[in-house]
Nucleic acid binder design. Structure first.
Lengths: 354, 354
DNA sequence: ATGAAAGCGCTAACAG
DNA sequence: CTGTTAGCGCTTTCAT
């Protein structure tokens, strides 16, 4: 390969505009301390020559790298890719994160990291040494991984922790899991349901307990008990089956169930069918996440839409803002979720008896 | 932000191993012209210090950037992301491309580019100036965009053109569209079908016509006519509906249909239902792509699996190989596709009359 | 408000 | 086989 050189560099621009390199650099960056007329002259040369700075050179000179690392769980991500069940977490991360990056001239780089791994720090160190990103987006369950959080804190780099309360550094960013679960439960209560089961997600994810808390809160608010209505799951289809069976085999089974993700909702749907229950007539069902499969079930699932794209977009904004201001936002940032009504919820007993 | 420096650089390694920078550099790279004992001494220091080279510095010094650009169509990609129908093209590209990159210490950067845009060249130029990638993966319809191909040729950089025959430069890489369509058609012929309709994809994609050619070839091989059995589509659901109606409203309707992608197959399925036809009893159906939705239809769709991950992986391999060898492979590389049998194909008339 | 000089981490080119 | 030198493109000092 021939030794590649930059086609047009800051030198060309400087020569064309008849100014020093420094002035061009100032115009490219904050633009302070440059007379307006100089600025426009330089800008004209930049446009004329189609100059775009090399991020490698920018990074080399101790400035920004314009790279943001989005770190996801390797095991889970690869499993999802392999399964081809339509889980679109990665897509939505890109949708929100990448497009927002593009607005600011940044690039998003995806990185898969094993949580269950002694070498996490080593892995991260390698990625950092190679890329020197300006910021990092952490997704669950990494957001609460102490090793990762400690490492990032030491780097003195802005990092956003999605689905974490943020103790130990970094910028916490929540999708309002508790509020969403409360909303979904309240929605069922309003429809006349009184006995509402809940299938929890993996305890490895903090958001799992928040969702449980939201459901508990709504039930308590309506003066209803939750005994025997909570079943543990781990986000997998199999765990959803077991949890659904546990809830539905009871003498007085719930008339509605909220599942902590779509896979477990799908399992619940299937289990209900096996038990001869019709959704939504005999059992109302709300799922979490709103991945593509909710469109294709029979009936389509009413679901809490996890605003992944909006959250990723927000994460990028927070990182870029913090890079400039040097300080993190003082409050927890929350991106709220919506409930998408489809066909898996019917009126409950209380409403039917009206 | 404090001025960030590399924690451990080539200098530290050189000092630790008591050799020159150059020797360390040699060990990092090809490793030629270094005595084994030196090499292992240097390697020991590298491991001890956890040294990883900065790609920015490597790029600056005129070497590789270890960055590969995967270019996708902006409009279509964003539409898919927004629709959340489970199209997993991007995921599978990452699955194959990113993991293969990681094996070689490269990174994959996703880039969205508008095909229908006068500024394509400008867009590409900007991405190149900023990142200076070592190679590019082009996906349809960009693979046959003359402006893009010309620009990349001028960059003297290896680039792979997925779904293109490759006139005008670059490394062509095919998913064997013609062969797959022939295989799917032959599969239906073997099942006893004689009247097999075909719904074509957008003419903007070369692969659309290859798929048609495969179908034609199989039909011709069986001595069967294709008159009136070809319907045009553009990969959208709506176009699939129109095409299906055209084929199924005929006096003597086909007993089987091959659709050029899943969305159009889904539309065909729905159209058949509206016409009171049962799939697969009254109509057999094979779709192309094998995106997640095929699992969720009623019945699940028998489909040609587009090996996107394998293709992306191959693309990365080709780029890296070419970077080293300086020369492109002499023949068209083909990644072959499989037919995944599900529930949308039944025996046709010829077999039933046996 | 502008310019000049130094250096980031690495490798190509050239010596030895 | 190994070391030295120069320079990639840019930004940070530091002058003016």
């Amino acid at each position: 390969m021939a030794r590649r050189r930059q086609a047009v560099t800051i030198k060309h621009v400087a020569a064309d505009a008849n100014v020093s390199l420094q002035t061009v650099s100032r115009v490219i960056n904050d633009g302070s301390n440059v007379r307006p007329e100089m600025k426009s002259r330089v800008q004209a040369s930049i446009d004329k020559l189609g100059y775009v700075p090399s991020i490698a050179a920018q990074r080399m000179s101790g400035s920004r790298s314009y790279l943001i690392l989005a770190i996801n769980d390797r095991e889970r991500t690869i499993a999802d890719w392999r399964a081809r069940q339509g889980t679109d977490w990665v897509d939505q991360m890109l949708f929100g994160g990448m497009l927002k990056c593009a607005e600011y001239g940044y690039r998003l780089i995806f990185e898969l990291v094993d949580t269950h791994n002694d070498h996490v720090e080593r892995e991260l160190q390698a990625a950092f040494a190679a890329l020197q990103p300006d910021g990092v987006i952490l997704t669950p369950p990494h957001s609460d991984n102490p090793q990762i959080v400690r490492f990032l804190s030491e780097q003195h780099i802005p990092f956003v922790r999605i689905g974490s309360l943020g103790d130990g550094g970094g910028i916490p960013l929540s999708m309002d899991d508790e509020g969403s679960a409360r909303m979904a439960t309240q929605y069922l209560l309003d429809k006349g349901h009184r006995s509402i089961g809940f299938i929890a997600g993996s305890a490895e994810y903090s958001l799992s307990e928040w969702r449980v808390a939201g459901w508990r809160g709504a039930m308590a608010g309506a003066g209803l008990p939750t005994d025997g209505l909570l079943a543990a799951g781990d986000f997998s289809y199999g765990s959803g089956e077991r949890a659904a069976r546990l809830l539905l085999d009871r003498e007085s089974r719930p008339t509605a169930i909220v599942a902590s993700n779509d896979q477990m909702a799908l399992a619940t749907l299937e289990t209900a069918r096996e038990l001869g229950l019709v959704v939504p007539d005999d059992l109302s069902l709300i799922s979490f996440d709103n991945t593509p499969l909710v469109h294709f079930t029979q009936p389509p699932l009413t679901a809490v839409d996890q605003p992944i794209a909006a959250t990723a977009s927000k994460a990028v904004e927070l990182i870029i803002a913090m890079q400039k201001s040097e300080k993190a936002p003082d409050a927890l940032t929350v991106v709220s979720a919506d409930l998408v009504e489809r066909g898996s919820v019917a009126a409950g007993p209380a409403q039917l008896h009206d």
